[in-house]
């Protein structure tokens, strides 16, 4: 029984990690309708920033969030303004997706050029300290990720539901032309949404960096799972991404322990395929206008 609870706790912690890196991805997709293949590299940039700030200034990694999240916001805004927006009128929507793939490759190689292929270890700042919750033992940093990801989901929902800017963002996501007729500057909303999505992953980086080694390709390690989580939860659904991340985390943890650690991905993707066959729109999909995402 104790083992079961330990596996359960590990699964929830893993789920929270997947959630915190996936939320920004689903937000950008839901609003700008662009699948951002550079999302993992945004996380990588964030983790290097956390590493640099903690290593050079001796700050606690969690404190770096006040700088890293705004910096990633600017990265997101710049990506939308300089790469996505000029391609908005492209005849084929897939061109935007290819552009983000290109950005991803460019950023990985830029990081290799600057930091080399060696890993960079952010000082843990006490976050790798194990803590005992009943029979289960988890890391302090993992508990913080769980709380932070829940806070992020709730915070974003409140922002989108309760503020005029949040409502404008939803209006643009639902009907772009009508939003323009309301006087909403659609291009500015897209920049804002892309910025917020990137800031979310910057927020995640401050919590992930103390627990995981940073390297130029760290993004690709997380982003595949992030895509599974986002599709599972229903593209564009923030709450869905959180739930999807928890499901994937639990499957990963239980399959790793009870079936065999080298078969956990078989279990994760097996369940993923099964759910896609049974409910292709994802578990918690909100009604989304996917009209310009070609099948």
């Amino acid at each position: 029984m104790d083992t079961f609870l330990q596996v359960l706790a590990s699964g929830l912690m893993l789920g929270a990690l997947f959630a915190i890196v996936s939320i920004g991805l689903t937000l950008i997709f839901g609003i700008v309708k662009v699948v951002n293949f550079a999302h993992g590299e945004f996380l990588m940039i964030g983790m290097y920033l956390v590493y640099l700030i903690t290593a050079k200034l001796g700050l606690h990694p969690l404190v770096t969030v006040v700088a890293v999240a705004p910096l990633l916001f600017l990265v997101g805004v710049a990506t939308q303004r300089l790469i996505i927006q000029p391609l908005m009128s492209a005849r084929d929507d897939h061109i935007q997706i290819f552009a983000t793939v290109g950005l991803s490759t460019a950023l990985i190689n830029l990081a290799l050029l600057i930091f080399g292929a060696d890993i960079a270890n952010t000082p843990p700042g006490g976050l790798r300290m194990p803590i005992q919750i009943g029979p289960a033992r988890v890391l302090l940093g993992q508990v913080i990720i769980l709380l932070a990801s829940a806070a992020l989901v709730i915070g974003l929902q409140l922002f989108l539901q309760r503020t005029q800017t949040g409502r404008a963002i939803r209006a643009v996501a639902q009907n772009r032309a009508a939003a323009q007729l309301m006087g909403i500057n659609v291009n500015r909303i897209y920049m804002l949404a892309f910025g917020i999505g990137a800031a979310c992953v910057g927020f995640a980086a401050a919590m992930v960096a103390p627990l995981y080694p940073t390297s130029p390709t760290i993004g690709t390690y997380f982003v595949l799972t992030a895509f599974v989580v986002v599709v599972l939860g229903g593209l564009g659904s923030i709450g869905g991404a959180f739930a999807g991340a928890m499901i994937i985390g639990l499957i990963d943890s239980f399959a790793g322990f009870y079936i065999g650690s080298d078969l956990r991905e078989v279990a994760v993707f097996g369940v993923f395929l099964l759910i896609l066959i049974l409910k292709p729109s994802g578990l918690f999909s909100e009604r989304l206008n996917l009209s310009h995402v070609s099948p």
Binding site: Q164, R167, R170, A171, N175, A178, M182, G183, I184
Partner: peptide, 17 residues
């Protein structure tokens, strides 16, 4: 061209954006 998933009240608020 209403915002179908938003409430009527929210639609009206968007009109006065």
């Amino acid at each position: 061209q209403l915002f179908a998933d938003m409430t009527v009240h929210e639609n009206l608020l968007m009109g006065a954006y």
